[in-house]
Amino acid sequence: MNRPVVRDLTLLIVRIVLGVVFVARGYTHWFVTGIGATAGEFARWGIPQPKLSAYLASGTELIAGALLVIGLLTTLVASALALLIALATYFVHLGNGFFVADGGIEYPLVLFVSLLMIVVFGAGRASLDEVLNRA
């Protein structure tokens, strides 16, 4: 099926869903649990520089997630989020098996592959990237 409309609609849906997931996670880290609690979790997981890492990860999730939703700098932010997920998989999920119920790699793997799809195929025509490229 080589239909540009279907491809662009699919990319839009994937971008919006991923963006909302990351905005929700970043928002939770900043405003619900707080950066201090997030840094504490990061320290328990053995993540280097837990406070700095908490700020970087939470800020990246919040800002990059919002940029994904609107489709601005899409390939760049999807790459950054894919790197963030790869690091989270290594530091947090890898030793817990496969299934999400055990804290395994199932969920981060789905996020990583979805972000990789955005990196490879771009934002699609329903994005600010496309609007700015036409100007």
Results as ranks from 00 to 15, higher is better:
V5W: 07
V6Y: 09
T10H: 12
L11H: 10
L11D: 05
I16S: 03
L18Q: 08
F22N: 05
V23R: 09
A24T: 02
R25P: 03
T28N: 07
V32L: 01
V32E: 10
I35F: 08
G40R: 15
E41S: 00
A43Q: 15
G46K: 00
I47D: 09
I47T: 02
P48W: 15
Q49C: 04
Q49L: 13
S53E: 09
A54C: 01
L56N: 11
G59Q: 07
E61I: 09
I70T: 09
T74Q: 04
T75C: 01
S79C: 04
S79Y: 08
A80S: 14
A82Q: 12
L84H: 13
A86M: 09
L87Y: 14
T89R: 03
Y90Q: 13
F91V: 05
F91T: 05
V92K: 14
H93V: 01
L94S: 11
F99C: 00
D102W: 13
G103R: 09
G103C: 10
E106G: 01
V110K: 12
V110W: 06
L111G: 15
V113E: 11
S114Y: 09
F121N: 02
A123R: 06
S127R: 09
S127H: 10
E130K: 11
E130R: 11
E130Y: 13
A135Q: 03
